[in-house]
Each structure stands twice: as structure tokens, then as C-alpha cells.
């Protein structure tokens, strides 16, 4: 069966969710102190959720690849690493835009900001190693991903002791119902998009491996 057909239904559903999201966000009430600018929240936080989920997926898949020697896990890790960088870019662009209006500065050396930036850099380094490391770099990159994923709580912790400005994650639980549902809507849309992109990228990587095998078989 052509696996491409499996993507049609989720794609339509997620496209519909993204199309409706602006209306839901528009209907949500203004936040009392920040006003209109607070609406970046519906965009910024779901992207960050997708990014951290992706980093986690990459770390676990790398460990499975390194210790279980499963080629498929490596393909998943590579796909997840690319998406971590992509969603990280969204977070790191939307964050400063919001910060400029809410805090008056583009950037603060705050715990959450710094740890996100470092995580993003680690996965950039992962991709650089995969791209320019030559043969055998998949195992090396898996080692880097394990360290990178383990590192996030440390950076977070060490900067947290230093100073903090970013609102804590428990804000989400204390949202008013009128703000909660557009947020949940955006979060599900984003995570759905992430899942879809990961599946598509993973499929592509599997097809590439198959093609490689066919080439090798043809040469023999």
C-alpha cells in the first residue's frame, strides 16, 4: 500500500485546525496587563512544547540506536533533530518579539531563554556533525544527542539559580477557561503538525535507506 495516502486525513485535519486557530485566538479575552501582545502566547508556547518533545524523542531514539543498534532509531533521531531546530527557530523568533513588548528588551539571560537557546545550539551541532562528520558520524551524533538531552535540565537549573524573569510553566494550569481552550486548540494543532512532519520525515529517511540498499544490490 502507498503509505502516502495515510497522510491525507491528518493533513486535512491539521490544516483545518490551523485555519480556525486565528478565530479562536481572536475570540479569546485580552490579558489584563499585556493586552494584545499576549496573544503571541498561543503561538510561542505550543511551538516550545513541540521543540522540547522533539529533543526528547531525539535523545531517546539516539540511546536506542547506540545501545540497541537499531538503524531505524537513528533515522527517527535524525528526523527529530531537524524538527527540534525548526520548531526552536519559531520559539526563538516569537519569544523576543513578545519580550520586546512585555519586558522592554529583546533578550534576557533568563533560565528558560538560555536553556532553550543552548538546546537549539546542541541540535544545530548535531546536524553539523551529521552533515560534515563523514562516515560513522551517526554513532558520534547519537552520543552528542544523549548529552544534549541530559544537559537541558542542568542549564535550566544553573541559570535559574542565577536569575529568572520568564513566567513559570504553571501559568498554563491557571489560565481562565476562555484563554484555556484556544490555547489547547493551538497546542493540539502544533503537536499534530509536529507528529505529521516527523512521520513524513521518518518515512523519507526510510525510503532513502531502501534506495541505498537497492543501489548496493544492483552494483553487486
Amino acid at each position: 500500500m502507498d503509505t502516502r495516502k495515510l497522510f491525507i486525513l491528518p493533513l486535512v485535519a491539521i490544516a483545518a485546525m490551523f485555519a480556525y486557530a486565528p478565530y479562536a485566538i481572536h475570540a479569546a479575552p485580552y490579558e489584563s496587563t499585556m493586552g494584545l501582545v499576549q496573544k503571541i502566547f498561543y503561538f510561542h508556547v505550543p511551538a516550545a512544547m513541540a521543540m522540547f518533545l522533539s529533543a526528547f524523542v531525539c535523545g531517546i531514539a539516539s540511546a536506542v540506536f547506540l545501545f540497541g543498534r537499531k538503524e531505524k532509531a537513528d533515522r527517527l533521531a535524525l528526523s527529530a533533530a531537524e524538527l527540534t531546530v525548526l520548531f526552536g527557530l519559531i520559539v526563538l523568533i516569537s519569544g523576543p518579539l513578545w519580550a520586546r513588548k512585555a519586558w522592554g528588551v529583546w533578550w534576557q539571560w533568563d533560565a528558560r531563554l538560555t536553556s532553550t537557546l543552548i538546546l537549539w545550539l546542541v541540535f544545530q551541532a548535531y546536524l553539523l556533525l551529521r552533515r560534515y562528520g563523514g562516515p560513522g558520524s551517526d554513532r558520534l551524533a547519537a552520543g552528542v544527542a544523549i548529552f544534549g538531552a541530559a544537559n537541558v535540565p542542568f542549564v535550566y537549573w544553573s541559570v535559574n539559580v542565577w536569575r529568572t524573569l520568564h513566567p513559570p510553566t504553571n501559568v498554563v494550569r491557571t489560565l481562565e477557561p476562555e484563554m484555556m481552550w484556544p490555547f489547547m486548540w493551538s497546542a493540539i494543532a502544533y503537536l499534530g503538525l509536529y507528529g505529521l512532519m516527523l512521520a513524513a520525515r521518518y518515512r523519507l529517511e526510510n525510503r532513502r535507506a531502501e534506495l541505498e540498499e537497492i543501489y548496493l544490490a544492483a552494483e553487486d
Binding site: 543552548i118 545550539l121 546542541v122 551541532a125 553539523l128 556533525l129 560534515y132 562528520g133 563523514g134 562516515p135 560513522g136 558520524s137 554513532r139 558520534l140 552520543g143 552528542v144 548529552f147 544534549g148 544537559n151 542542568f154 542549564v155 537549573w157 544553573s158 541559570v159 542565577w162
Partner: peptide, 29 residues
């Protein structure tokens, strides 16, 4: 660990700091 594993990699001179600095930032802080 990173220097040892990069021994077999291409462009290892550049890759060592690229991989090492983001990971060791908590230590530096």
C-alpha cells in the same frame, strides 16, 4: 569523550568546539 570519538570524523578540528561548548556551558556558568 568528544575528542576521542571525533578522531575518525572529517573536519574534526572545527567540530570539537562546536559540539563541546554548548554541552559544557553549565560547567562554565
Amino acid at each position: 569523550l568528544f575528542a576521542a570519538m571525533l578522531v575518525r570524523a572529517r573536519s574534526r578540528d572545527v567540530l570539537l568546539p562546536v559540539l563541546l561548548y554548548p554541552i559544557t556551558i553549565p560547567v562554565i556558568i
